[in-house]
């Protein structure tokens, strides 16, 4: 078996292959659903209803999509420059830590000043978390997959230490959780009484900003050039190492915003279950979006919808909600395969 590059991928192919990937995911999940003893059609209907069938469901999906847009963008930016940032989870938690460090009363300012201050501080923290791996990569050629992945565990233990120590809420009845952020540090809800918050707007704006950076600026150009062919970029005088460091700062900052927005917009405080793996799911989101920043919005909503819908479905159809994770994981695999088949033709023999 051999792969031959295709001369050019047509518009039709770039729609049909991803569509095929989704279809393959549906077929595969159907098999699992049938094994679980339910009818696939009912289950998928319940998933769709659970994700978008009511105002409550739709808002919940968008709420869940918010951190995924941030982590998806973080991954998309980094992967575009072939910086394999697997550490969005760590950067997310560090952003959240900085949010509670500043936002629980250490600084008192009106919202218009405090929120931007926290955002910038959170982004810097996340950026610094990725700076180390980026410098190790550019100076010594240390594989950033390893360093960023392992940093996730280090940071999670570090956060756990903070929550048992300096950041522990004295009124928290001994639970490992931080104090709640003050009112001025909270992001407003978009609709009164509903969970969807201003973080969603920030996420959409971030996606547009990232899209502009990638498309229109010299930095985006440099990042794409380095990602596609670092040797040629270097030959042309593009400062490859500096571009990698800048990419790391941007990526880490975006991931940290996910942590900021979850704490300041939704949860109000920091706990160890702030993120059910949003950093890792961001990789799926970015790949489904084929690294396109605007595509990240759609991909994040899609993935969030599967999770939210599967939760609702499992309550009524008696199929474990794990099916959501299987579907998301399968969609990643089929999408990666589809992207490859879009670019290459398989020759047997």
């Amino acid at each position: 078996m051999r792969l031959e590059p295709r001369p050019a991928s047509s518009v039709a192919a770039s729609i049909l292959w991803p569509a095929g990937a989704i279809l393959a995911t549906v077929v595969f999940s159907s098999l699992l659903v049938m094994i679980a003893g339910a009818s696939p059609l009912t289950v998928f209907w319940l998933v769709i209803k659970g994700a978008a069938g009511s105002q409550f469901a739709a808002l919940e999906t968008l709420t869940r999509a918010t951190p995924l847009i941030f982590t998806g963008l973080a991954v998309a930016v980094a992967f575009r420059a072939k910086l394999w940032n697997i550490g969005a989870e760590a950067q997310l938690y560090l952003g959240a830590v900085m949010t509670v460090v500043i936002g629980t009363g250490a600084v008192t300012l009106p919202s218009a000043g405090l929120i931007p201050l926290i955002m910038i501080a959170a982004m810097l923290t996340g950026a610094l978390a990725l700076l180390g791996p980026a410098v190790l990569k550019t100076k010594f050629g240390v594989d950033e997959v390893v360093t960023t992945l392992l940093l996730n565990f280090i940071v999670l233990l570090f956060v756990s230490m903070l929550l048992e120590g300096p950041l522990k809420d004295p009124t928290g009845l001994g639970w490992p959780q931080s104090k709640r952020v003050i009112a001025e540090a909270q992001l407003p809800r978009l609709i009164k009484g509903k969970r969807l918050h201003f973080g969603f707007i920030l996420a959409i704006v971030s996606a547009i900003v990232v899209w502009v950076i990638m498309k229109k600026t010299t930095l985006g150009y440099e990042m794409r050039a380095v990602g596609h062919n670092a040797e040629a970029a270097r030959f042309a005088g593009i400062p490859v190492n500096r571009v990698i460091v800048k990419t790391a700062l941007l990526s880490g900052g975006l991931a940290a915003l996910a942590g900021f927005s979850e704490v300041a917009g939704l949860k109000g405080n920091l706990t160890l279950d702030l993120s059910p793996g949003y950093g890792y799911t961001g990789i799926v989101v970015a790949m489904l979006a084929m690294l396109n920043p605007l595509g990240v919005i759609a991909a994040a909503i899609f993935v969030a919808g599967i999770f939210v819908g599967a939760d609702a479905m499992s309550r009524s159809a008696n199929v474990p909600s794990y099916i959501a994770e299987v579907m998301v994981a399968t969609s990643l695999l089929t999408m990666v395969a589809a992207i490859m088949l879009m670019r290459y033709r398989v020759r047997w023999r």
Binding site: T218, Y221, H228, N229, A233
Partner: peptide, 28 residues
């Protein structure tokens, strides 16, 4: 010499994209 997955225009400016001829204030 070239970045195959980028366009002709993107490739020909690769040595001069920072000059005022092709970019201003960081925008290409």
């Amino acid at each position: 010499g070239m970045i195959g997955d980028m366009s002709v225009a993107e490739n020909v400016i690769s040595e001069a994209y920072r000059s005022p001829r092709f970019s201003r204030f960081g925008f290409l």
